[in-house]
Design a protein around this nucleic acid. Sequence first.
DNA 1: TAAAATTTTTAGACTTGTCTAAAAATCAGT
DNA 2: ACTGATTTTTAGACAAGTCTAAAAATTTTA
Lengths: 219, 219
Amino acid sequence: MNSFTEENYIKAIYKLNESDNASVTTNAIAEQMHTKAASVTDMLKKLFVKKLIHYQKYRGVTLTVKGEKTALNIIRKHRLWEMFLVEKFNFKWDEVHDVAEQLEHIQSDKLIEELDKFLNYPKADPHGDPIPDAKGKLHIQKSKMLSLLNVNDNCIMTGVVDHSTPFLQYLERCGLVLGNEIKIKEILTFDKSLQITVNKKNSLFISNDVAKNILVTLK
Amino acid sequence: MNSFTEENYIKAIYKLNESDNASVTTNAIAEQMHTKAASVTDMLKKLFVKKLIHYQKYRGVTLTVKGEKTALNIIRKHRLWEMFLVEKFNFKWDEVHDVAEQLEHIQSDKLIEELDKFLNYPKADPHGDPIPDAKGKLHIQKSKMLSLLNVNDNCIMTGVVDHSTPFLQYLERCGLVLGNEIKIKEILTFDKSLQITVNKKNSLFISNDVAKNILVTLK
DNA sequence: TAAAATTTTTAGACTTGTCTAAAAATCAGT
DNA sequence: ACTGATTTTTAGACAAGTCTAAAAATTTTA
Ligand SMILES: [Mn+2]
Ligand SMILES: [Mn+2]
Ligand SMILES: [Mn+2]
Ligand SMILES: [Mn+2]
């Protein structure tokens, strides 16, 4: 089928297109994949021949329907495995990424079907990201950044933007984990940092940068 | 660390040495790996540089202590994953091999530790093969081929020699699965085929070739 | 709109793992 | 102990994926 490398490129293109929704540039892919632009160009030629991307020299790329299907299947596997590790194997949400990065490439339809069943068909992964269903359908929740809310707004934490280990560990130390209730007590005019309460109890300050990376839905 | 390919070669050398206990030949490895002798020679040079094998030109190879440790860890992972698939994911014993062949290469100590715990530290895999412990210790059960027993001997099925899908499916159809009691009713002098009962109930005939591939321990 | 800066592609080389064909070493039979 | 058969290694080539340096195209700036 597709090699691990091809799968990782396809996933990278999907992710880059997801944020922008514009055609993805060679340099952006190179940065995402930690390779050089020249290597990306070589791979784009290959993916084009396999009809996984639309590609014209110097014009950037987008995924074809086939490519998007492929991407969604890899993302589905990645997120199901992350969920599995957290729910069944006592991994923390900051420990799952590297292992899921390997597990997402395992080829076995039965395995993924059983994994999904075993987890009771979860809708989101440990970071609040939606899990595509077996047909590649992605049910997107409409959440917003905590930094966009106002004083006295009350919300539930549903996701994170940054997935880095230090950030996730910091959040956990503050009790800022998925499902918890966050109420905004005050927004400092000086630097837009926030005073919040978590589950109506512990009050704490977080920077605006932190708030930008927390996703919530209003109650 | 080691590439998937290197890991598969190391495992192949371990398995070939396990049966013979003699030094392993280039051609034997080539056959096991479904490659050509020239490719094997290239890889042997690489494994030698990495101090995973003892190797002298034209003299065959054996694993070093480091190589054997590596092999046992891969086999441990392979067998634990097979157990997991059968116990938790409704795989049959003839369906697990290909997926375990992929999963055995996933790198994560915590994952394997949790997997072992989750399965309650199993001693053998779905085919009755022993699972090395975290230190690489392998507790070998002393079983023998069913074909070596005599009339009226009573035994428990503990393993299989051949692991092929058709053979395993055939055994399952006959009720010949691990843990069942087998009693030898008659051995035909003509072709050494056996009449047996399984769990004191269904009586059936099996060829001597089949009996050679069934491992048992006397009651 | 033409020069300068940036991005992207090409050219050529390297690594890993594979192959075929040919050479070298070992083994077997007399 | 030869000689012929077999096994193993070497030589040289190829595919996948990567890199650096240079050329080509696009975008920016003035
Ligand atoms: Mn990956
Ligand atoms: Mn995630
Ligand atoms: Mn394998
Ligand atoms: Mn097995």
